[in-house]
Write a protein that binds this DNA or RNA. Structure first.
Lengths: 93, 93
DNA sequence: CAGCATCCTACCAGATACTG
DNA sequence: CAGTATCTGGTAGGATGCTG
């Protein structure tokens, strides 16, 4: 989700993404990007420069997913605290 | 998601849910329901009858999640085939 | 810069059997 | 009916080191 949301704003390079999402390991970032690419949601463009740069973008299909995604993200922003509260209340008993 | 969508329509009992979602094991159904309950999205009401019946419902908070959820489900219905196609196209090469 | 290869472990979830 | 208990194989993902 974070990757998709970032790419929804602009293109990113690999390490740029990695820096923007510190909590993800390199391995998982690669795997996730490959999965998204495989599913046709993200495009991966290699620029044959030295050193090489790789540009990640949302595909048109990927962009259609931004709607449902922000519906989810907005919900999380509003109701996330409620869930945290429910959990604590549950733990307490 | 399937559980939430079903409970969005009406109350269910445990085995009723299990029958409605054949692909889930009893263990996972229990675990998932406990998680949803813990997060305050689903309520679990035990009716002290013999044999006991347990009623599952969405909480008010759970109901607020139906919007984002159907946004996702609708997207999947429309674009699911696109993803399948992207995968095959990817596998082919 | 943008990864891949390898090793290792903790957790996940299925199968199966049992219970108030 | 509505679960719990136990065992177990499989895998997800972190850590680390290497490469064109």
């Amino acid at each position: 989700m974070l990757i998709m949301i970032l790419l929804g704003k602009r293109s990113y390079q690999f390490n740029e993404l990695h820096r923007s999402i510190e909590s993800i390991s390199q391995r998982m970032l690669t795997r996730t990007l490959r999965g998204l690419e495989r599913d046709g949601l993200v495009s991966r463009t290699v620029h044959p420069t030295v050193p090489p740069t790789v540009e990640y973008d949302l595909t048109p299909l990927g962009r259609t997913f931004l709607g449902p995604l922000s519906a989810l993200a907005d919900w999380a922003v509003v109701h996330g605290p409620d869930i945290a509260a429910a959990r604590e209340h549950h733990d307490a008993r």
